[in-house]
Amino acid sequence: MKVLVAVKRVVDYNVKIRIKADKSGVDTANLKMSMNPFDEIAVEEAIRWKEQGKANEVIVLSIGPQSAQDTLRTALAMGADRAILVKTDDEVQPLAVAKLIKAVAKTEAPDVILLGKQAIDDDSNQTGQMLAALLGWPQGTFVSSATPDENHRITVIREIDGGLETLSLVCPCVLTTDLRLNEPRYASLPNIMKAKKKPLDVTTPADLGVDTTPRLTLLKVEEPPTRKAGMIVGSVSELVEKLKNEAKVL
């Protein structure tokens, strides 16, 4: 089984972002960047399948600027076999990302494509579902368990609003990861060294014949409303009194 994993380079989840003074966007210059946490989970899953003998090749793919190579190297250090960078300095929105991944999938012909359920910068939660549509493949979104079998099917458990749901999907299929799927490993120093020698191919949206013109125009970015400062109460009885008589919620 061949597995393709899409990884996005995003502002690290621990970093507080700044909005540009002219409201034109978020200032990401000089911020710590990391692999999108859901994509780390996706890479980890693919590597585990390989270790269990269920997958024979793990390819990681990122769309972004030259610096996205660092994210791909991290994935290679975790254990992926080779990497593809679709290099562009332009903003690429989920539909165009899905088209680019589809174009790569046409040549690579993976049995499974793993993505994160959501990029923690744009919070779109779209790309995997769009990719599945464009390829005409089944989708297993928000998965907390994924078990490939010998019959070219994958059993997935999905996190849904009311609980959990189990589906059986035919391969090839698209899966998107949720937080409970696994705990990603840290790359060891020797593996980081080894990753430098693993193959990393670079292509472009033009090479792949995909138009990435944004369909959504960003008009402005603003701070969310802030809450007014609250108070510290001294005791449980004071809390109850405030909730009853001041906030009037009890």
Partner: peptide, 16 residues
Amino acid sequence: RPIYAGNALATVRSND
């Protein structure tokens, strides 16, 4: 729509 875990609110126009 909120982005970055609600730390910013983006106003977007759809051209589709």
